[in-house]
Computed example of a mutant assay.
Amino acid sequence: MSKRTALIFGHNKYAHEIISNVKKTYSNIRIFALEDVDDDSPYEVEKFDLSDDWKGIGEDINIEESIAFCVLQDMAENIFLTISLRSNFADLAIIAVALNRESANKLSMAGANKVIPLVETTADIITNILEKPISSKILSNILYEESSLKIAQIKIDTESKLDNHKLVSIDWTRYHGVIILSLIHEDMKSEFIYSKKMKEYVIQSGDILVVVGYENDITEFEKIIGSKRYVNWSHWRG
Rank of each mutant, 00 (worst) to 15 (best):
V115S: 06
K55R: 13
L92G: 08
I19G: 03
S103G: 06
G206S: 07
W233S: 09
E186Y: 05
G238E: 13
I184W: 10
S66F: 06
Y26V: 06
K150L: 15
D74V: 10
F80E: 10
K199P: 07
D39K: 05
S140A: 11
V231A: 06
I151V: 07
R86F: 15
I129A: 02
K150C: 15
K197T: 10
K197A: 12
P42D: 03
M198E: 14
A6N: 13
E200Q: 06
E35S: 06
F32R: 03
I151A: 00
A110H: 03
S41C: 05
T173P: 07
I79Y: 04
I170Q: 10
I63K: 04
E146K: 14
T5D: 00
N216G: 09
I63R: 02
D49R: 09
Q73W: 07
P133L: 03
I57W: 12
F69Y: 09
I95K: 00
V45T: 07
K228P: 02
G58V: 07
T25Q: 15
D207Y: 00
A93Y: 01
N62H: 13
G58L: 08
W54T: 06
I193C: 00
I116K: 01
Q204T: 12
E77D: 11
Y26K: 04
T127W: 02
K23F: 05
W236E: 13
I57C: 11
K166N: 11
I8P: 04
I126E: 08
D217Q: 14
L143N: 11
L143Q: 15
L149H: 15
S140K: 12
E222M: 03
E46R: 11
I95H: 00
H11K: 15
M1C: 00
S20K: 13
M188Y: 13
M188F: 07
N164M: 10
S190Q: 04
T219S: 08
I18F: 00
D36E: 14
K196T: 14
N141C: 02
Y26M: 03
V231Q: 09
V115A: 10
V231P: 10
E65M: 15
G206A: 03
N100L: 07
E44F: 07
